[in-house]
Design a protein around this nucleic acid. Structure first.
Length: 533
RNA sequence: GGGAGCGUAGCUCAAUUGGCAGAGCAAUGGACUCUUAAUCCAUAGGUUGACGGUUCGAUUCCGUCCGCUCUCACCA
């Protein structure tokens, strides 16, 4: 056991806690026992008794409550201790009085550390200072924590450790729990919204054969199935399988799921992220704009309580209707054009576009590689118009060129354009939708164009999915479909600056540590686990 | 990949022109029957991210590497 004059390095602190676990065993108390019944939570007690004052609780002589949670504070006053327990709802104080608990329970408080999981039973009361507490008639340590918690006042603020050891982040920083509760609430509300509209939730393969790995412009992760000797890709979209289900007659389907794209990491991109794609037969992209306005504004209300939510200093009003901007129109406007716009934009040279891009290196670079007017328009839009989109409102961008939309339906009145929109909010894209291309011969042509792009070095071009064309040959009803980035919606509705804040375990580079073999050889992890991350 | 910044005790942070690496919390021993960042007395805790270099002497200056943040590029 502990001796005065010993060190308090992390290794020693762990060793001391292990000694305490041993002492508990010796006293007949299992430091990792189970089978405890915990019928109540801190939230339950607060909800039931926050309005009762001390005399009221005294008069009620409440039933004994049982709660359990992590020990967040121990204030020992000799024969009285105040112990804050934190459960899934929050914190509740337990008042442990020497003459109210079994002697063994009080004796074992010496073996209790911050961070341990403990159990308390007793009636509700208020302490002299008025704090709702449980007056323990039983207090037990349930689980011995071997590592200390971060500091009580500042918590854990080191960003890297917060992401790498999210369990510590969640245990100490209550606001982090709120983000992920909101995330769950958003997804639940999203399901309810679509279920109410007679959509059916489905699951399609994540492992795609190479020719299936389309549905978006992105590079996939490659993997392999051993027994079939089959190279596979992780999906970059759910689109092509969901449309097969529309052919099959399900008519309204959606899938919420993980998407994998082998690309860089930044504020709005993580290699794996969550999307929802939804497809509705006999709907058009116009119908989906209405649906999107209803959906997002309702999610905002359900998650935050109102239809407005602040994002990074700007209040965003999600109520319908959202302003609409024409991609082609805005680019033409930038060139001072009126009339039949695409033809006039055709007449512009690459140099005209590049000159408009000004100092924007990215736009200049992309424009220099663009092979069609449509691509030039799309890049010019990104460079010239996207930065000017309204900040206090979401908005729709419409009138997309055909060349950047290989799966979207041509517009009947203007075949150079497609019936497509993207929704923007907070400075980034949150949704992409279109009336689906259901003409199998047109789809073949678009796939061929993609294959040509791939041949000329475009790593993001889609493969030619023959089975998808065959599905279309069976007849897909007129359909509209939409993809929404769940993580980005959660960012908006939790005011989170980066996607990592809304992912429980964002991808991090591994730290240089000793090999697993070394760890196994040397026994307890504390000997190889560098604390300084 | 380029540029800028950061990395000090378990946690949150200090350290003067290069001169013995410090504090608060947590920990350990003790006191205390109403605390809530409890208080009081005492004690202990460091490979200053790693490896080199310059120097009598490096947390500090230089180089390489690792990780993180921001940014540009790449990438929807």
């Amino acid at each position: 056991m502990a001796e005065p004059g010993q060190t308090s390095s992390i290794e020693d602190q762990i060793r001391l806690r292990e000694d305490k676990a041993q002492a508990l065993r010796a006293a007949g108390a299992h430091p990792y026992g189970n089978g405890v019944e915990v019928p109540h939570t801190s939230g339950f007690l607060h909800a039931r008794h926050d309005t009762d004052d001390g005399p009221a609780l005294e008069a009620k002589l409440t039933e004994p409550y049982s709660i359990a949670g992590r020990v967040m504070a121990i204030r020992a006053m000799g024969k009285v201790s105040f112990i804050s327990l934190r459960d899934r709802d929050g914190d509740l104080q337990v008042f442990v009085k020497k003459d109210k608990v079994p002697p063994a329970d009080f004796e074992r408080l010496k073996l209790l550390d911050l961070g341990d999981i403990a159990f308390a039973r007793g009636r509700a009361m208020r302490t002299r200072t008025g704090e709702l507490s449980i007056e323990a008639v039983e207090f037990r340590l349930l689980t011995k924590a071997l590592r200390p918690l971060p500091e009580k006042w500042h918590g854990l603020s080191h960003i890297e450790t917060r992401y790498r050891q999210r369990y510590v982040d969640l245990a100490t920083n209550l606001e982090v729990r709120q983000i992920f509760k909101r995330r769950a609430k958003l997804i639940t509300a999203l399901r309810r919204f679509l279920d109410e509209r007679d959509y059916v939730e489905v699951e399609t393969p994540i492992l795609h054969k190479p020719e299936e790995a389309g549905g978006a412009a992105a590079r996939p992760f490659a993997t392999h199935h051993n027994t079939l000797g089959l190279d596979l890709k992780l999906r970059i979209a759910t689109e092509l399988h969901l449309k097969r289900l529309i052919v099959g007659g399900l008519e309204r389907v959606y899938e919420i799921g993980r998407i994998f794209r082998n690309e860089g990491v930044d504020r709005t991109h993580n290699p794996e992220f969550t999307s929802i794609e939804l497809y509705q037969a006999y709907a058009t992209h116009e119908d989906l704009m209405t649906l999107t306005e209803q959906l997002v504004s309702r999610l905002c209300v359900e998650v935050t309580g109102t239809a407005e939510a602040p994002y990074q200093g700007t209040m965003i009003d999600y109520r319908a209707p959202w302003p609409r901007l024409s991609m082609v129109g805005e680019v033409a406007k930038a060139f001072g054009l009126v009339g039949s716009l695409t033809e006039q934009l055709d007449a512009l040279t690459r140099a005209d576009f590049v000159s408009k891009a000004g100092d924007d290196k990215e736009a200049r670079h992309k424009l220099s590689r663009a092979q069609s007017t449509g691509e030039k328009i799309a890049w010019a839009f990104e460079a010239l118009v996207e930065p000017m989109l309204p900040r206090d409102r979401p908005c729709f961008v419409v009138d997309f060129p055909l060349e950047v939309s290989p799966l979207a339906r041509k517009r009947d009145t203007e075949p150079r354009l497609v019936d497509r929109f993207e929704a923007f909010a907070g400075g980034f894209e949150i949704a992409n939708a279109f009336s689906e291309l259901n003409d199998p011969r047109d789809q073949e042509e678009r796939f061929r164009a993609q294959v040509n792009k791939a041949a000329s070095g475009d790593h993001e071009a889609m493969p030619y999915d023959r089975d998808f064309v065959r599905a279309l040959e069976h007849g897909m009803p007129p359909t509209a479909g939409e993809g929404i980035g769940i993580d980005r919606l959660v960012m908006l509705l939790t005011d989170s600056p980066t996607i990592r804040d809304v992912l429980l375990f964002p991808l991090m580079k591994p730290l240089a540590e000793e090999s697993v073999e070394d760890a196994v050889d040397s026994g307890p992890a504390r000997l190889v686990d560098g604390e300084k991350h």
